[in-house]
């Protein structure tokens, strides 16, 4: 394997890890506040659809683009793409509020509410998609300014001459869709918010002992809704990335393909901490990249089938969720609706 091939692998690792990372951080905010969220998958799916549908509509020829090509240098592709992301976030927030209403206000079972959101998203996206576009539940292919394209970071070509690090910067770090950078920057931001701000302190406390937060004069309901809302925003960006920032360039039925659950596994693997979450998501991204790059691996005795290679991330998910990797202690009040003592 030469260096170029390795960088190619890293490049797709980064792209694969992005939606996982955003969803994983979404889960982190929600679960740190004591609201279990297995609806990451559904929120992402709804966001992917809403983003692709709105972008396709916004980019359709009869909508005039007032400043053609104005922002194309940033790879943003003007309003269609931005509108798409906003629509994705909006759809995901709606789902998140539904989850919040069921599990915070009505004090329902958080797992059931999460499952319901996954089913709702899987069904509604195809149904609405078919009635809008009549393409079997898909959205039209996004092209040109309706999708995200790579963003060349400054000095990429100049520094490319430096051995190893130069090409690494030019071929892996640079040239990614802007949402990749958003996801990467979200990691230190999350860590900072969690451990250095008043909001973070209260968020962590409300997931451990909501009674302590309540008696300290802080509203448990408001804290938990904020957390669920943040999760909605992050899942929205993750979904928009899936349908607008990858080679798919459009919405396809069930396109999240279990990423919400993989993100959940990564969250447990990372023990609900931001930087380890980055590591876990990169690991899953790498496995996915290996699976799609090396399809039939001949190890001499026999050929490892392509299906096995592609199943790698899911196998790791099962291993993690079965608790083989250390003991992960979730936030203590997680999954339990808060009721004032009788």
């Amino acid at each position: 394997m030469d260096l170029a091939e390795l960088f190619q692998l890293f490049d797709s690792t980064l792209r694969n890890a992005t939606p996982l990372l955003l969803a994983c951080l979404a889960g982190l905010f929600s679960e740190r506040s004591g609201i279990f969220d297995i609806g990451l998958e559904g929120k992402m799916l709804a966001a992917a659809f809403a983003a692709a549908a709105v972008a396709a509509w916004a980019a359709a020829p009869y909508v005039a683009d007032p400043f053609p090509g104005q922002l194309s240098g940033l790879g943003l592709g003007w309003t269609a793409a931005i509108l798409g992301v906003l629509a994705g976030i909006f759809a995901s927030i709606l789902m998140a509020l539904l989850h919040g209403f069921a599990s915070i206000t009505l004090r329902g079972n958080q797992l059931i509410s999460g499952v319901a959101i996954n089913f709702l998203a899987a069904g509604a996206t195809v149904l609405i998609g078919e009635s809008l576009f009549s393409m079997g539940g898909q959205t039209p292919q996004l092209s040109g300014n309706a999708r995200f394209s790579g963003l060349d970071l400054p000095l990429a070509e100049t520094l490319g001459g430096i051995p190893i690090l130069g090409p690494l910067y030019r071929d892996v770090i640079s040239g990614q869709v802007i949402l990749v950078y958003v996801a990467l920057l979200a990691v230190p931001l999350t860590a900072w918010v969690l451990f250095n701000t008043r909001f973070g302190l209260r968020l962590r406390a409300v997931g451990e002992n909501p009674g302590a937060v309540d008696t300290a004069g802080v509203s448990v309901v408001r804290m938990r809704y904020s957390a669920v809302l943040i999760a909605g925003i992050l899942c929205g960006i993750a979904g928009a990335y899936l349908s607008m920032g990858t080679s798919a360039a459009g919405f396809v039925k069930d396109m999240t393909a279990g990423r919400g659950f993989i993100a959940l596994a990564a969250l447990i693997f990372a023990k609900w901490r931001p930087y380890p979450a980055l590591g876990a998501c990169l690991l899953f991204g790498l496995l996915e990249a290996i699976g799609s790059k090396y399809q039939n691996v001949d190890i001499g005795l026999f050929v490892i089938p392509v299906q096995f290679m592609q199943a790698l991330p899911y196998i790791l998910t099962v291993v993690i969720l079965a608790g083989f990797i250390g003991k992960a202690i979730p936030p203590k009040a997680g999954g339990v609706p808060y009721v004032k003592e009788r």
């Binding site: 250095n196 701000t197 008043r198 302190l201 406390a205 002992n209 302590a212 937060v213 300290a216 203590k332």
Partner: peptide
């Protein structure tokens, strides 16, 4: 309270400050 209203995995300092912070930053 009879059953202490403390966050078990927080430090003493964090528990004391919780809900009575002076501003958005903790330090």
């Amino acid at each position: 309270h009879q059953h202490f209203m403390l966050v078990q995995n927080f430090t003493v300092l964090e528990n004391v400050v919780l809900g009575a912070e002076d501003g958005a930053l903790l330090k």
